[in-house]
């Protein structure tokens, strides 16, 4: 259920909540995942994003998101100049991502030889769904601090992860566990939290035997 503040707002950069604000929020999610502006990114535009990329400023919004510009900052309209100034390289390509929402983009980021792939859809009124991160399927709206964990597919793995998260009194809002490979005994755990976690929690998670990698994404 929408709140009245969502009805009479938000304050944003025009012209379109789904083609400008939504696009920007997907890109901002990618920025939060990388932790800063990457050296390079490729934006693969699917469906109507290919048509709105200039006329609705979808392209500038995507660049602005990865530059870390706030969603209602007037500098969004000059995001291309800001990117040039800070040395952020980008490219736009068209793509057919198959049976996904018409307003969908795949963002591939490159920073210090690490690359990430985020696929997100803008589903209206500025709301988004991140449907895949580094090829792991998910369904995130970017509203919660999120832990993305690759862990061993063994008994007790999930309970030790949850124990570490809960030690500091952090409450879990939503939790997904997907087996990645039965053969490799690997799984992916996605945890959406009610509050941000301290660095020490992330470090403790990384030290667990059952945990392979941990990524932490702040809310948009």
């Amino acid at each position: 259920m929408s709140s009245i503040l969502e009805i009479i707002g938000p304050s944003m950069i025009g012209p379109s909540s789904s083609h400008t604000l939504g696009a920007m929020r997907i890109s901002k999610f990618a920025y939060n995942l990388v932790g800063s502006t990457p050296q390079k990114a490729i934006f693969y535009l699917h469906g109507s994003f290919q048509d709105t990329y200039i006329g609705h400023g979808t392209g500038l919004a995507l660049i602005a998101g990865l530059c870390g510009i706030p969603t209602d900052d007037p500098r969004v309209s000059k995001a291309n100049e800001i990117a040039k100034h800070i040395g952020f390289e980008y490219e736009f390509k068209s793509v057919d991502l198959g049976n996904v929402h018409p307003n969908t983009v795949k963002i591939v980021t490159y920073k210090d030889n690490v690359h990430h792939e985020i696929v997100g859809s803008s589903i209206g009124a500025g709301r988004i769904v991140i449907i895949s991160i580094d090829s792991v399927e998910c369904e995130l709206d970017g509203e919660y601090p999120t832990l993305l964990i690759e862990n061993k597919d063994v008994p007790g793995a999930l309970s030790s992860i949850i124990r570490i998260i809960s030690i500091n009194g952090t409450n879990i809002a939503k939790l997904y566990l997907n087996r990645e490979s039965k053969y490799l005994k690997l799984a992916n755990t996605v945890v959406e939290l009610d509050s941000e976690v301290p660095n020490s929690t992330i470090e403790s998670l990384k030290m667990l035997d059952v945990v392979k990698t941990v990524m932490y994404v702040k809310p948009i």
Binding site: M12, P74, A125
Partner: peptide, 16 residues
């Protein structure tokens, strides 16, 4: 017009 020029607006209830 500011909205169409990527100005800051309040989507009350939408950009358009």
């Amino acid at each position: 017009e500011s909205n169409a020029a990527m100005g800051r607006i309040v989507a009350c209830p939408t950009g358009g």
